[in-house]
């Protein structure tokens, strides 16, 4: 049997009261606010990784530690190898990813809007998705030899299917209600793509470009590794062949660092800007 009483118990008078957010804010010590902030989490994550790296390098001879890698990087700078090689890779990578983004968004929108295009392109895109970057790297070296074209095409071919798949998926998810509204008012197709489809799939485009960057950098590195002609991949292979793993790792760390900074300070900001309507409340 359940007894209902209107007499407050001692427990309900202390446990039952919920504090306001202002009270919680006032009662939280400053050190705790700093330690539980986002920047603190990021710094802690970075420090944890460096610590892990130090430990692993101390345990295994063939893993160069952060200090050795840093020293190799400084040496490469002083030899004047960094700007030329890094610039070449950046150019090839940038052109390849930009092409993949433009072509991927166009094809993805087409596949998302047209059933016939989807039926026609679905299988080739699936095949392209399953071909690893190393295969494209070999093929483009055979087709285009040394120089910029091979790495650019490899970057493009490895990354474009990911942009296409993401964007096509996004376009298929565009609100049916808004598409019907546009059809009812006979809105021209160009305006529908610009004002309805592209803003609706911004998140999917961003995800596609992120994939393109991650996959594309594998492609450019492998093409330079096998194709020579300078670049980050070429220098990484130079040190690898010389059995100097610190030199090899220095180039990888340099490019990975660049990708992380690109993601955080360019892509993230661009995404925030394109979603500013969500924050306007």
């Amino acid at each position: 049997m359940t007894t209902v009483s209107d007499q407050p118990t001692s427990a309900s008078s202390t446990v039952g009261r919920r504090r306001s957010t202002t009270e919680i804010e006032q009662d939280t010590p400053q050190w705790r606010k700093v330690l539980t902030s986002d920047p603190a989490a990021r710094v802690t994550s970075l420090l944890a990784f460096v610590l892990f790296w130090v430990v692993v390098s101390a345990l295994f001879d063939r893993v160069p530690g952060p200090v050795a890698v840093w020293t190799s990087l400084v040496d490469e700078f002083s030899r004047g190898e960094v700007f030329g090689n890094f610039g070449s890779t950046l150019y090839r990578f940038g052109v390849g990813v930009a092409l993949a983004t433009v072509v991927g968004v166009a094809v993805g929108v087409l596949m998302g809007l047209s059933q016939l295009s989807r039926a026609f392109l679905e299988s080739p895109v699936l095949v392209a998705l399953s071909i690893p970057a190393i295969i494209w790297a070999f093929l483009t070296v055979m087709w285009f030899g040394f120089g910029d074209t091979g790495p650019i095409i490899t970057t493009f071919l490895t990354s474009v299917p990911f942009v296409i798949v993401n964007v096509a998926q996004g376009v298929r998810g565009v609100s049916r209600d808004l598409r019907d509204m546009s059809a009812t008012y006979d809105v021209p197709m160009g305006r529908r793509v610009r004002d309805l489809v592209l803003p609706a799939v911004t998140g999917y485009i961003a995800a596609g470009v992120r994939f393109a960057i991650i996959i594309g950098w594998n492609g450019v590195l492998l093409a330079e590794w096998f194709g020579g002609g300078g670049g980050v991949g070429y220098r990484a292979r130079f040190w690898y062949d010389a059995n100097r793993y610190a030199g090899f790792a220095a180039w990888v760390v340099l490019f990975v660092g660049f990708i992380v900074l690109l993601d955080r300070f360019v892509l993230d900001k661009a995404i925030q800007r394109s979603f500013r309507w969500r924050d306007a409340r």
Binding site: D177, L178, D180, M181, D195, L196, P199, A200, W277, R278
Partner: peptide, 9 residues
């Protein structure tokens, strides 16, 4: 029935 406005415009 619902306004069907583009939320980003």
């Amino acid at each position: 029935q619902d306004p069907r406005l583009l939320p980003w415009r």
